[in-house]
Structure formats: C-alpha cells, structure tokens
C-alpha cells in the first residue's frame, strides 16, 4: 500500500537553519487514511507541509520523508508533485496572465510521457465536470489563476486542481481558513468525493468545524514542532471543548514528571 512516511523530521527556514521550526516529527500516512493535524498557530504545521512539497524557503536539516519507502528529499518540487504529492496552499499565488485552463492543462500535460499530446476535448470535458461538482462557474477557465478570487474561490480552485491531478497524498494546509460555512461545505464535499483507498490526506486545520464535514481517521496534535498527542476523531472534539491549553498542561506535567 502506498505510504508517506515522515521520519524524525527537522525543518528550518533556509535563512536560519540553526533555528528549527519542525523538531523531530514522525508520522506515517497510508492511502485510504485521513490524518488531521491540529495545533495552535506558529507550531510548524504549515512549515511541515511546505517542506514536504519542497518549498525553497525551507531546509530539512535532519530526518527523512519517504514516499513508498523512497526518500523524496533529493527531488525537485515538480518531481515530488508528479510522484503523487499535492500541496493545497493556504495562500495560493495569484498569477495574472495565466488562465486556469492553461495552468491546469500544463500540470496535466507535465504528467504525460515526452511527446505525448493531451487530448484537449477529453481534458475540457473532465475539467468542466470537476468544476460543476465544485460549483465553479465554467467561465473561470479563462480567468487568470486566483487573480481577484475570493477566499472561497481560491480554495475551491485548489480542490479543482487536486481533483484534476489525482494525487496519492494530499497535504491540505488550512484549507478551511477564510471560508464561510457554504464554501466550507462545498470544499469538504469536494475532498470527500475524492476520498477512498487511492488517496491519503494530511489535513492541517486550526478548527474542529472542517472535521464535521471531513471526518478524520486519525487526529494528531502538533505543538512546538512535533506531534504530542494522537487519537481518533474524538480527540478533535476534546480539543474543541478543552482548548489547546489542556494539551500544553498535559505536556508540561509529563515533562516535569
């Protein structure tokens, strides 16, 4: 079964490599599983997902990330993506002058063999069906990527790309942030539609509410750069009720003991 294995990972900003943000995180995700990673702000959740995707601002100073048992750390971001890793951005870039249609098309084309041409009719048919599912106006195909999009439109567009590219592992970075309840429901339904034994998900979120719609198999609490507590979906409810201070206190008690 395909696996994404994070082994004792340390990540820092490239500019300050001696100040780790992620500090010895270990987690294995298999396809068919949804892992929610929760935790207070500034605890390294976004850093973790960007580092796995290969963002140039971050360095992995120690540890490893393995896709199906093979390290991806020597791979470029585009190679990691083609290998099956998808990062749904918290703040997707605006790219004026590049249309959604051309952007997604280039991404689909990049997955074809050298010299193989994309079937444009089939591509548009598939793109439109995914857009309909995510309630994205078909006119968006000719709009520039994320330019002038609302928060909800941007996130739906991320899910659209995910649906088109069919990754093995999706790292979803605060996909719920900035969404009203309707947008949240549409986005969650989009993810749920893809859920199954071919996809593993790492769902980074600050709040329980997304997990009402995408019910996770596992919940991990991240604090100060590592996972300090893991459990099933009830852990999220407990966090919602007791707050992150509860975890902090538990952690402090454990350290002094």
């Amino acid at each position: 079964m395909p696996s994404l294995e994070i082994r004792d990972l340390f990540v820092a900003l490239a500019a300050t490599p001696d100040k780790p943000i992620v500090k010895g995180l270990t987690l294995t995700i298999l396809t068919g599983e949804v892992h929610a990673i929760m935790g207070p702000n500034g605890t390294g959740k976004s850093t973790l997902s960007k580092a796995i995707a290969g963002h140039p601002d971050y360095v992995i100073t120690s540890g490893d990330v393995l896709l199906d048992g093979k390290s991806i750390l020597e791979m470029e971001p585009d190679q990691r993506a083609r290998a099956g890793i998808f990062l749904a951005f918290q703040y997707p870039s605006e790219i004026p002058g590049v249309t959604i249609a051309n952007f997604v098309r280039a991404a689909v084309q990049a997955r074809l063999a050298e010299g193989e041409d994309l079937d444009a009719t089939a591509y548009y048919k598939r793109l439109y069906s995914k857009m309909d599912l995510l309630k994205i106006d078909r006119k968006f195909t000719s709009r520039s990527v994320n330019e002038g999009f609302s928060g909800g439109e941007k996130k739906r567009c991320e899910i659209l790309q995910m649906a088109m590219l069919e990754p093995t592992f999706a790292l979803m970075d605060e996909t719920d942030s900035g969404l009203d309840i309707d947008a949240l429901r549409i986005v969650a339904e989009g993810v749920e539609a893809m859920r199954g034994d071919k996809l593993g998900v790492m769902l980074i979120t600050h709040y329980q509410r997304l997990l009402d719609y995408i019910v996770p198999d596992f919940v991990h609490v991240m604090y100060d750069g590592r996972i300090v507590k893991s459990g099933d979906k009830t852990l999220a409810l407990e966090l919602e009720a007791k707050g992150y201070d509860w975890v902090k206190q538990e952690l402090a008690a454990a350290t002094t003991a």
Partner: peptide, 16 residues
C-alpha cells in the same frame, strides 16, 4: 513554486 508544486517542470513554469 506554485507552478512547480503542480508538477510543472521549471522550464515550463518559466515559459508560462
């Protein structure tokens, strides 16, 4: 990075 994170090769990302 956004383009590359979608699997688009660096030279193609630059072309876009």
């Amino acid at each position: 990075f956004y383009l590359q994170a979608r699997g688009i090769k660096p030279v193609e990302a630059r072309r876009l």
